[in-house]
Design a protein around this nucleic acid. Sequence first.
DNA 1: GTCTATAACCCGATAGAC
DNA 2: GTCTATCGGGTTATAGAC
Lengths: 184, 184
Amino acid sequence: MAATVSLLSRQGYEATAVKQITTEAAAPMGSFYFHFPGGKEELALAALAQGAEGVDALLRGTLARASAPEDGLADCALALADALTRSNWLDGCPVAATALESIGRSPALRAAAAEAFDRWIVTLQRHLTAAGVADEPARSLAVTALALLEGAEMLARVRGSAEPLHDAAAALRVLARGVVPTEH
Amino acid sequence: MAATVSLLSRQGYEATAVKQITTEAAAPMGSFYFHFPGGKEELALAALAQGAEGVDALLRGTLARASAPEDGLADCALALADALTRSNWLDGCPVAATALESIGRSPALRAAAAEAFDRWIVTLQRHLTAAGVADEPARSLAVTALALLEGAEMLARVRGSAEPLHDAAAALRVLARGVVPTEH
DNA sequence: GTCTATAACCCGATAGAC
DNA sequence: GTCTATCGGGTTATAGAC
């Protein structure tokens, strides 16, 4: 299962063969279809849900540890850069590749991807409202922040450089300072 | 060829069969391998290059038509939203899906995707330097803008809503105003 | 140069013995 | 519940007639 999350993150849904998954998990093909009668798609749905939880935990942890509320979003970009560097740019967002592939092909996968994105947006938005930002600018900035994180991560992985995520962190700091009320 | 660009944009590299391409182009399988001895991958490389040119033309046209230099980046987000809505969220970035699939699998495709992204970044950066922004903040903002455009487009397609691209446009306006010198 | 027919292979999924 | 052996179909790519 963790193997599936990683494979979907690295190569997407279409390029990932069921056989590759069962091999990596040291499980035989046959019993796989006992646990996942819905086949490959059902497994992918479960993997997307698990991947969504993993990313959400990373975001929540990073936001909670932020030295100042207005730096939380930027810290998320830096946390992604760190995780990516450690995996040699292989383990990216566990949802992105599958999301793009699913748009015109699998309504179920597309919905699962949308749900994952929504969950992360809510997490980011809550961080902002907790810092005193009103609901509406908070939601808009949360959507923008997630888009920027996803896009910067894609650029970083394709180029093999953390630069886009560092640039994104700087931009997120600017955007957050525009809406988060300062204490003094 | 144009068919290939569209198919890569809609479903990525792995999900696109050579047969689907030749069928859509009303060409027989056999002669395809005469024109593309490198097979599917060589065709995809050509399609990525053509897709890169198409997007670059859209960006250049939008930036040239911008009412004010500091609105150029935001206009790009709105142009993408417009094109996406017209295709029912199907025809997105012709590079993104293939880029994510290729990272751990095909160095040639990954390099082609990186080249496309670089080209767009240069186009965005030139718009900023032409508006009087210094090289370094211009490059950093161009990278951030492309990341935001790509991420927002992915979110918009997955959710079937232009909202993320509108939010991105607003953010790009804020970021551009922070670095583009005003006239008066 | 163009196209058909097919090879060689891999895919997801299943039947059926255990 | 577990696993092996296999099915039917779709994949890329090619051989060979035209």
